[in-house]
Write a protein that binds this DNA or RNA. Structure first.
Length: 550
RNA sequence: GCGGGUAUGAUCUAGUGGUUAUGAUCUUGGCUUCCCAAGCCAAGUGCCCGGGUUCGAGUCCCGGUAUCCGCACCA
């Protein structure tokens, strides 16, 4: 029996082709959902609106990288170590532990569990239910042993691993932002709550790279007087973006700017402003890579406040990690206002002397010599394989040079807004779902914005008269050719057809009645007011395009 | 992963171990020619999966799966 809005929304979603449980004919699998025809279109509309905000408004660039990600990347990023622990819980004191931390190395985990060797370090009670907490799906690349890999738990790493190329693409100027829209995978222990927590899910992430000494944003002035909807774990309040930064409630301009962009996006998409807020992560709930994080939370009548967007300051965490493990230079250059001239003593090696003298070690010695700090022009030596090797004076020259230094290297910091698209899609359905009574019967309207609605216009002949049908079909075709998603319908009564469109959020309906034969006009009905206005057929495309534009 | 509830057409739902599984919504065709889910006629689609008990299981039992609630988990 339908009980609350979640049930009603999910019923409607399944019946009308928004969301289906995946693999249902084989019993279904928890954590997987299909988007049907209308759901796919709605999701596309959400993603495309998102792109408008990040690609157009914020001038980001977009990339696409594989969902299968090699071990090395996720090892460096910290995901491997944070994700593959066998954990146990103590039923009594409710603590959970990594098994490796509390048992001896010389017994296997299975054995330890069987023999009750695992005891709670805090209260001494027996621990049970050891289980693998590995939120990444693993796979192998190639046949046989193959190469270890995972399905990515976030799209971000594909951006970080290309940083040096993208930095060049952006003409070596900061800040610049890179986005990726795609699937992420987390092998959740027990996914629930429908599409709000899936094992395969759509994400839209932006990684914006900043100079850590300058976390300002070029568009900040334009939005600094706008209000942010904030929550400090006690009360909800509003502050302008500027105030939030001044009062240090939000650490820096960049973070605050992307919070506002996120708020603007969600409200434009049709999220109910009364069911929206930002909540700051407490220090102990921060992800391993984050130094500050704000969640955009949306309110569900069933589930309460749900995180839909995380906006994190990842600092230099990821780039540092990839520099360390790959050896690739992913630094950025901070240019000085004026190039500085630095006097340097430099060693110039005479390889024609060193070669014959050191033979196969010459190359390595050269590398070492180029790194050392030269204090004494004489008595130069290096340590190779534990042996000290003196380098005779005839092997090199010390020259005094003046070098122009144009800037200093640093590792950029990253601000990351990360969106769970499936959650946004669900909330658009829940927040826009409305029920009214019509003649005592329940009447459902999905008040999606015209921009988000999967179908923009219903096109109907008032009655099945062939003349009207032909004209209506013609109008339908013209609108489609003009790029407007339509739905032609001549089945059932006119009221039923309006009702069908209202239920899937179609904002407009065009009805062709007999007046078309006199003055070439049709009626255009507005979903929310049910008011109609007459329009000449030749005005339709322009009229609708105007209503549907962003 | 633990404990509890639930599972009947696309959706909602009735069903006491015993004929061909109830009703509604829905979909399709026909009549009606109509501006907000009208009516009439006809048709269509279903007992989550696997075992067991029984002469006989949608119904009882066991296991699985899905889903809901609570706990844990959600970097």
């Amino acid at each position: 029996m339908p009980q609350d809005i979640y049930d009603k929304v999910m019923m409607l979603a399944k019946r009308r082709g928004f969301i289906y449980p995946s693999f249902e004919i084989y019993g279904g699998v928890a954590g997987f959902y299909d988007y049907g025809p209308l759901g796919s279109q709605l999701k596309n509309n959400v993603e495309n609106l998102w792109r408008r905000f990040y690609l157009l408004k914020d001038n980001c660039i977009e990339v696409n990288t594989p969902t299968i990600t090699i071990y090395d990347v996720l090892k460096s990023s910290g995901h491997v170590d944070e994700f593959t622990d066998l954990t146990v819980e103590c039923k009594k004191c409710k603590r959970s532990y990594k098994v490796e931390d509390i048992i001896d190395d010389d017994i296997s985990v299975e054995q330890a569990v069987k023999e009750d060797k695992i005891k709670c370090p805090t209260c001494g009670k027996k621990l049970s239910d050891a289980h693998q907490v590995n939120l990444m799906f693993s796979t192998t690349i190639g046949i046989g042993e193959g190469r270890k890999a995972f399905l990515r738990p976030e799209t971000a790493q594909g951006i970080f691993t290309n940083f040096h190329l993208l930095y060049r693409y952006s003409r070596e100027k900061l800040p610049f932002g890179v986005i990726q829209v795609g699937k992420g995978y987390r092998n959740e222990i027990s996914p629930r709550q429908g599409t709000l927590r899936q094992r395969e899910f759509a994400m839209a992430e932006a990684e914006i790279f900043f100079d850590p000494d300058d976390k300002t944003h070029p568009n900040f002035d334009g939005i600094k007087e706008r209000e942010l909807y904030l929550f400090d774990n006690e009360k909800e309040f509003k502050l302008t973006v500027q105030e939030a930064v001044d009062k240090k409630i939000i650490n820096n301009q960049a973070l605050a700017y992307y919070m506002y962009l996120t708020q603007d996006f969600l409200l434009s998409a049709g999220v109910d402003p009364k069911k929206f807020r930002f909540r700051k992560h407490a220090p102990d709930e921060l992800a391993h890579y984050a130094t500050e994080c704000w969640d955009a939370e949306l309110y569900s009548e069933r589930f309460g406040w749900v995180e839909c967007v995380g906006i994190a300051d990842r600092s230099a965490y990821d780039l540092s990690a990839h520099i360390d493990s790959s050896g690739i230079d992913m630094h950025a250059l901070r240019k000085f206002d004026e190039p500085k001239t630095i006097n340097r003593r430099k060693i110039v090696l005479k390889m024609n002397v060193m070669g014959p003298l050191f033979k196969d070690k010459a190359g390595k010695i050269k590398e070492l010599l180029e790194k050392i700090d030269i204090k004494d022009a004489k008595n130069i030596s290096v340590t190779l394989d534990g042996k000290t090797i003196d380098v005779p004076e005839n092997c090199y020259e010390i020259v005094e040079t003046k070098e122009k230094v144009t800037g200093e290297k640093f590792i950029p910091h990253v601000i990351e807004p990360s969106y769970g698209i499936d959650r946004v899609v669900y909330f658009l359905l829940e927040h826009n779902y409305a029920e009214i009574k019509k003649k005592g019967e329940e009447y459902r309207i999905l008040k999606l914005t015209p921009q988000m609605a999967p179908i923009k216009v219903g096109v109907f002949p008032l009655i099945g008269d062939k003349k009207l049908v032909d004209i209506a079909k013609d109008i339908d075709k013209n609108l489609r050719n003009a790029g407007v998603e339509t739905y032609y319908d001549d089945g059932g009564t006119i009221g039923r057809r309006y009702a069908r469109m209202d239920e899937i959020g179609t904002p407009f309906c065009i009805t062709v009645d007999h007046d078309i034969l006199k003055d070439n006009t049709v009626t255009v009905r507005d979903r929310d007011t049910t008011k109609q206005q007459r329009k000449k057929t030749e005005e339709l495309v322009e009229f609708l395009k105007n209503k549907l534009s962003y």
